[in-house]
Write a protein that binds this DNA or RNA. Structure first.
Lengths: 186, 186
DNA sequence: ATCCTCATGTAACCCGTTACATGATTAA
DNA sequence: TTAATCATGTAACGGGTTACATGAGGAT
C-alpha cells in the first residue's frame, strides 16, 4: 500500500496523537514546517481519502455545539505507517532557496552581493528565533521531535554563520581587488 | 514586470551565457539543482512565454543539420533581471526532507532511528561527493557560482557530521540498555 | 457588538515532474 | 550499426497554495 506524500504525514500525525485536521495543521505549522509543510487544502481531502482506503476511521466528536471530526488509525493504517518508517527509501532532501539562486547569479550585479547575504542572514535569524522559542519545551518532547528541533537550530545557526563569514570575507576582498584594479587600470 | 519563478532562472541563465534550452537544463542539473531545479517541461514553455513578453529574443542557430534555437536577453529582459537581483524579497528558504520527517516521527519505531540516520548520512555523502567533483573548477568560476558551491559543500558536510554525531550519541544511549539486554539474554 | 480562535471544507490556480515523441549527429 | 549525445518539445498527471466560504464559541 503506497502512501502519497501527504498521506504519510497525516498518518504519522494521527499516530502522534493529533486527531483533527485543524489540530494537525496547527501542529505542522509549529513544528515540521521547516522540513515538511502541509496546508488545509491537502489535509482535509487526504483524511477523506485515507478513510475510503480504510487506513483511518473518523468519529464525530463535537465540543459543545461546535462540530469536530476526530480520526484514528485502523490496523491497516498503523501497519502502513510503520512500513513507511521502516522502508529505507525516501532519503530525498530538496531545497528551494531564492537567495542562493541570486547569489549564484550575483556576478550580473556584484555590488548587491553583500546586501543579499545580509538580508538572507536576517531572514534566517527569524527562523532561528522561532525555533529557539520551542527549545524550552524540548525536555518534555519525545526524542524524535527533540532531535529534529536540535537539527533545525543547528542548521539555521550554521547558515547564519556562513552568511556572516561570507559577508566579512567579501567586505575584506572588496578593498584589495579594488586596489589591484586601480593599479593595473589607471 | 513580475517574473514567474522559472522566468527568473531562465533570464538569469541567459544572462550567464547559456543560450539554448538544452544547455540551460544541463547546466542547472550540474550546478544550481541543489537549491533550485528546473525541467525541460518548464524551460521550453517559459522561453516561449518570455519571447511573447518581449524579454528575450530567439534566433535559429543550427549546428550542421541539427536545428537549434538560441536566446538572448532584450533590454527589457536585462532590466527585469537586474531588477529581480536588486529586489530585497525572495528570501525564502524551503526544504522538503523526508528523512527529517521520519526522524520526527521515529518514536513510533525507535529501533529504526539509527538506521534512518545512517542511510540519510550516506545519501548526503553522495551529494557531497558530486559537489566535491566540481571543486577543482572553482578557481575558474565567477564569484557567484564559487560561493554557492562552497556553501553547498559546507552545508552537506554540516549535515553529514550532524547525522554521524547523532548516530553515535544514540548508539551510546543505547549502549547501556543493549548491555543490559545482553546480560539478560546471554 | 466585535473580534479572535476553533473548525471544516473546497475551487481555482500555479507549478512542476514524468514520460514520451521526434530526429539529427557523433563516437564506439 | 548501434548507442550515446545534442536538441526540442508537449500532454498528462500529481501535488500544493491561496483564497474564500461557513459557522459556532469564547473573550473584550
Amino acid at each position: 500500500m503506497e502512501l502519497s506524500p501527504t498521506a504519510k504525514v497525516v498518518c504519522a500525525l494521527i499516530g502522534f496523537g493529533k486527531r483533527t485536521g485543524y489540530e494537525m495543521k496547527q501542529f505542522v505549522d509549529k513544528t515540521t514546517r521547516y522540513f515538511w509543510a502541509a496546508s488545509y487544502g491537502q489535509i482535509y481531502p487526504e483524511l477523506r481519502r485515507l478513510e475510503e482506503q480504510g487506513l483511518v476511521v473518523s468519529r464525530e466528536d463535537p465540543t459543545g455545539g461546535r462540530r469536530r471530526t476526530s480520526y484514528a488509525l485502523t490496523d491497516a493504517g498503523r501497519e502502513a505507517l510503520t512500513a513507511w518508517l521502516a522502508r529505507g527509501d525516501g532519503l530525498m532532501f530538496e531545497q528551494r532557496c531564492e537567495s542562493m539562486l541570486k547569489l549564484f547569479f550575483s556576478d550580473a550585479a556584484p555590488e548587491l552581493r553583500v546586501d543579499q547575504l545580509r538580508s538572507f542572514a536576517r531572514a534566517l535569524e527569524g527562523n532561528l528565533a522561532a525555533l529557539r522559542e520551542l527549545q524550552p519545551l524540548a525536555p518534555e518532547m519525545p526524542e524524535g521531535p527533540r532531535l529534529t528541533l536540535e537539527f533545525g537550530i543547528a542548521q539555521m545557526q550554521f547558515m547564519v554563520d556562513w552568511c556572516r563569514r561570507m559577508e566579512s570575507r567579501l567586505a575584506a576582498d572588496a578593498g584589495r581587488p579594488a586596489a589591484r584594479e586601480e593599479a593595473t587600470r589607471v
